[in-house]
Simulated assay, not measured.
Amino acid sequence: MEQQVRVLPDEDGVRVIVCAGDFDQDTLAPLDQACTQAADDPGVRRIVLDVTRVAFADSSMLNLMVRMLHTDRLVVAGPVPEQLGRLLDLTQVRGILRITDDGIDAARTL
Rank of each mutant, 00 (worst) to 15 (best):
Q92K: 13
I104V: 15
L110I: 13
T27M: 05
Q4C: 14
M65L: 12
R15T: 08
A38I: 04
S60D: 04
F23H: 00
G95K: 01
G13L: 09
P79L: 10
M65E: 01
L90F: 10
G103Q: 03
V80N: 02
M1D: 15
A106G: 04
L31Y: 08
T71F: 13
G13D: 07
D50Q: 12
R67C: 07
L62I: 06
V51A: 00
A77I: 08
V51R: 00
G78A: 08
V18L: 15
M65Q: 04
V75C: 10
P81H: 08
E11L: 11
A57P: 00
F56A: 03
I47T: 07
I96V: 13
P9S: 03
Q33K: 15
R46L: 05
C19W: 02
A39L: 09
D101Y: 01
E82M: 15
I47C: 07
L8R: 13
D22C: 08
P42Y: 08
D41N: 14
Q3E: 10
D10Q: 12
N63Q: 14
I99V: 11
V16H: 06
V7N: 06
V18H: 06
L74K: 05
R73V: 09
F23E: 00
G13Y: 13
D72T: 13
A106C: 06
D41W: 09
V76T: 13
G13M: 10
E2A: 14
A38S: 12
P42G: 09
D24F: 08
G95R: 03
S60C: 04
V5P: 01
G103Y: 01
V14S: 04
L110P: 03
R98V: 12
P81S: 12
D40R: 12
A57I: 00
I47R: 03
L31D: 02
L90P: 02
D12R: 12
G13N: 10
H70W: 15
T100V: 02
P42L: 09
R53T: 13
D24C: 04
G43I: 08
P79Q: 10
T36M: 15
I47Y: 06
A38D: 09
L88E: 05
M68G: 02
A55N: 11
M68Q: 11
D26G: 07
R67H: 06
I47A: 08
D41V: 09
L8N: 09
D26H: 14
I104S: 04
T100E: 03
I104Y: 06
D101N: 13
D102K: 10
A39E: 10
T36C: 07
R108M: 12
L74R: 05
H70C: 14
V14E: 05
V54Q: 01
Q83H: 11
T91K: 00
M1F: 12
A55D: 12
Q37F: 10
P79N: 08
A106I: 01
T52L: 06
R6F: 13
V5S: 05
L88V: 05
R86Q: 12
G21N: 07
V16C: 04
R73S: 08
D50E: 14
L88I: 03
L8W: 10
Q83A: 14
V75M: 11
P81F: 04
L62H: 07
V75Y: 04
L88W: 02
L64W: 01
T27R: 06
T52P: 02
P30F: 07
L90M: 12
N63S: 15
